[in-house]
Deep mutational scan, measured.
Amino acid sequence: MAAGGDHGSPDSYRSPLASRYASPEMCFVFSDRYKFRTWRQLWLWLAEAEQTLGLPITDEQIQEMKSNLENIDFKMAAEEEKRLRHDVMAHVHTFGHCCPKAAGIIHLGATSCYVGDNTDLIILRNALDLLLPKLARVISRLADFAKERASLPTLGFTHFQPAQLTTVGKRCCLWIQDLCMDLQNLKRVRDDLRFRGVKGTTGTQASFLQLFEGDDHKVEQLDKMVTEKAGFKRAFIITGQTYTRKVDIEVLSVLASLGASVHKICTDIRLLANLKEMEEPFEKQQIGSSAMPYKRNPMRSERCCSLARHLMTLVMDPLQTASVQWFERTLDDSANRRICLAEAFLTADTILNTLQNISEGLVVYPKVIERRIRQELPFMATENIIMAMVKAGGSRQDCHEKIRVLSQQAASVVKQEGGDNDLIERIQVDAYFSPIHSQLDHLLDPSSFTGRASQQVQRFLEEEVYPLLKPYESVMKVKAELCL
């Protein structure tokens, strides 16, 4: 049975990233139509530049190519590739079939990587351009969430054990800070992308030097003109047959890092959902379990974690691919890159769409948070109580021993009897502590235990987050809708 299948058929496997999760716009960027249309555009740009620099290419040939950029006979191309065992030459023939007058000058002087690699770089750039505003929107939604809850005390956790208090907004800023680093890295790697350009079979530009009869300047002009037509500021000066596969490492490393950030955020949300302090959106008709109707599973956060793990592992592909590119190139890269580049971007696209949807509907339960604080705060307040007693004339050592005994009794009630923490009640009825009984409410005010959390939130948002989001103001209103 021949390899390949009808990918629109229910009898043929289709990647869930495309069929179930990723956005239509990201799927289109990695589609065959987008790819092969870009090949034709690159052939047109090459012909236009070659004509401008004096090669015998007519206006009629150029116009014929322009008129057929979208006229792609995919069936013919597939048949040609089956016959020739070469995808680029299959599309040269297919393009030439609908451009008979231009057929002889299509791909003039070029090698397969002229269309293959340059198209990949265009796709990487455009895919990054799709991700950047999506990530900015996630940051914006979380920034709104953090600002609104900047002063809401909550129990902090280290080692997932109760620690000092923080605020809900401050905790959210930990998430935002990681995503801001990801946004900066995505922008950097996007701006650092260079075009492969017009380089020939081993990167020496020998074929173009021959076409222009040894004119170095025209060869350099050709490279520059096509690079500018493709919208790049610069091209690699040095290439082998391909652009260095280190570029793929750079791009997928940034995406993998984004995956790590999203995994951490969504894990926190899942843990908070278990504590009943916070939940992701839950639709009115949504079913959490087929057997347990009360369940409210954090399905979206779980999906993000599941896909983020996949995204983090994909960076190993370009690392290994770059390491086995012998001399000017081997074909070890080809099949692998067809999979890992598309999957990385479709996965990143999915987790950003999902995280935006989550961040637009996060639900906080202040009463649950308050109750958990009441359970733990008495123990945390013991040092403040000791200091207040010393100020009232008591002995630190005597007070410490009193607190120690009462704390152990209260802990026994919590752990052995399943009761509430009654340390404060014990202190309130103990005559030894009568000098500070009137101060206990103040000493137990949760806001006095959150330090500068709310001020940190305000400063972080104003100095770091809002300036970073400013270039994306025009796209901030787009909502994230999930079908599944």
Rank of each mutant, 00 (worst) to 15 (best):
G4H: 14
D6S: 12
S9Q: 14
D11V: 13
D11Q: 15
S12A: 13
R14T: 13
L17V: 15
S19H: 07
Y21F: 12
Y21D: 02
P24I: 15
E25S: 14
C27P: 15
F30I: 00
D32N: 09
R33I: 11
R33G: 07
R33D: 04
Y34S: 11
K35P: 03
R37V: 08
W39K: 01
R40V: 06
Q41R: 15
Q41Y: 11
W43C: 02
W45D: 15
L46F: 15
L46S: 05
A47G: 04
E48H: 01
A49P: 06
Q51M: 07
L53R: 00
L55Q: 08
I57Y: 07
I57F: 05
D59E: 03
D59V: 09
Q61R: 05
I62V: 07
E64Y: 12
K66T: 12
N68I: 02
L69N: 12
L69M: 13
N71Y: 10
D73I: 05
F74N: 14
A78V: 09
A78N: 14
E81G: 03
E81P: 08
E81T: 04
K82I: 12
L84G: 07
L84D: 13
L84M: 10
R85F: 02
R85W: 10
M89C: 04
M89T: 03
F95K: 02
F95P: 00
G96L: 05
G96K: 05
H97Y: 12
P100F: 00
P100Y: 11
P100E: 10
K101S: 07
A102W: 00
A103K: 10
L108V: 08
A110Q: 01
Y114A: 00
Y114T: 06
V115P: 15
V115D: 02
G116F: 07
G116N: 08
N118A: 04
D120E: 09
L128K: 15
D129P: 00
L130D: 14
L131T: 09
L132Y: 11
P133C: 15
L135C: 11
L135H: 06
R137K: 07
I139M: 08
I139T: 15
I139D: 04
I139N: 15
L142Q: 01
A143G: 09
K147T: 09
S151V: 11
L152M: 12
G156V: 02
G156N: 03
T158V: 01
H159T: 00
H159M: 01
L165M: 00
L165C: 04
T166P: 12
V168E: 06
C172A: 09
I176L: 10
Q177S: 13
D178Q: 09
L179T: 14
M181Y: 05
D182V: 02
D182M: 01
L183C: 10
L186R: 03
K187E: 13
V189T: 15
D192A: 12
D192R: 14
L193W: 10
R194V: 12
F195R: 03
R196E: 09
R196F: 08
G197Q: 01
V198M: 15
K199R: 05
T201V: 11
T201Y: 04
G203M: 00
A206N: 08
L209T: 08
L209A: 05
E213H: 09
E213I: 15
G214V: 07
G214R: 09
D215T: 12
H217N: 10
K218Y: 15
V219Y: 06
L222G: 01
D223I: 00
D223E: 13
M225Q: 10
M225G: 05
E228L: 05
K229V: 02
A230L: 03
A230R: 05
A235P: 06
F236P: 03
I237G: 10
I238P: 03
I238E: 04
T239C: 10
T242A: 07
R245E: 01
V247F: 09
D248S: 03
S253D: 04
V254E: 08
S257R: 10
S257C: 11
A260S: 10
A260E: 14
H263P: 02
H263N: 08
K264F: 02
C266A: 07
T267S: 10
D268A: 05
I269G: 01
L271H: 11
L271V: 06
A273E: 13
K276R: 09
E277H: 12
E277K: 02
M278I: 11
M278Y: 08
E279W: 06
E280K: 05
E283K: 13
K284M: 08
Q286F: 00
P293A: 12
P293C: 07
K295I: 02
R296S: 12
N297K: 02
R300V: 15
E302L: 00
C304G: 11
C304I: 08
C305D: 05
R309F: 10
R309V: 12
R309S: 09
R309I: 06
H310M: 13
L311I: 06
M312N: 00
M312F: 00
M312K: 06
M312H: 07
M316G: 05
P318Y: 00
A322R: 01
A322G: 09
S323N: 00
V324F: 08
V324N: 08
V324M: 07
Q325L: 10
W326L: 09
W326M: 15
F327E: 05
R329I: 00
T330R: 01
L331C: 03
D333S: 00
D333P: 00
S334C: 09
R337S: 02
L341S: 14
L341I: 09
A342L: 03
A342R: 10
A344I: 01
T347V: 07
A348K: 02
D349C: 10
T350D: 10
N353G: 11
L355S: 02
L355M: 06
Q356D: 15
N357P: 03
I358A: 15
K367I: 07
Q375R: 05
M380H: 02
E383L: 01
I386L: 05
M389E: 08
V390Y: 11
K391D: 05
K391P: 11
A392V: 14
G394T: 06
G394L: 05
G394R: 06
R396Y: 04
D398E: 06
D398G: 09
C399Q: 08
H400P: 00
H400L: 05
E401G: 12
K402H: 03
K402C: 04
K402T: 01
R404Y: 06
V405R: 12
L406P: 02
Q408T: 12
Q408F: 12
A410H: 07
V414Y: 04
K415C: 11
G418M: 14
G418H: 01
G418L: 02
D420M: 03
N421E: 09
D422M: 15
D422W: 15
D422L: 05
D422V: 14
L423F: 14
E425H: 13
E425K: 10
I427V: 14
V429P: 06
D430L: 03
F433C: 05
S434L: 11
I436S: 06
H442L: 12
L444W: 13
L444F: 11
D445C: 13
P446N: 05
S447R: 12
S447N: 15
S447L: 14
T450G: 05
R452P: 02
R452N: 08
Q456C: 14
Q456W: 04
Q458W: 14
R459Q: 15
E462D: 13
Y466H: 15
P467S: 12
P467A: 13
P467N: 15
L468C: 15
L468W: 13
K470H: 12
K470G: 13
K470I: 07
Y472R: 10
S474E: 15
S474V: 14
S474C: 15
V475Q: 13
K477C: 12
L482T: 14
L484R: 14
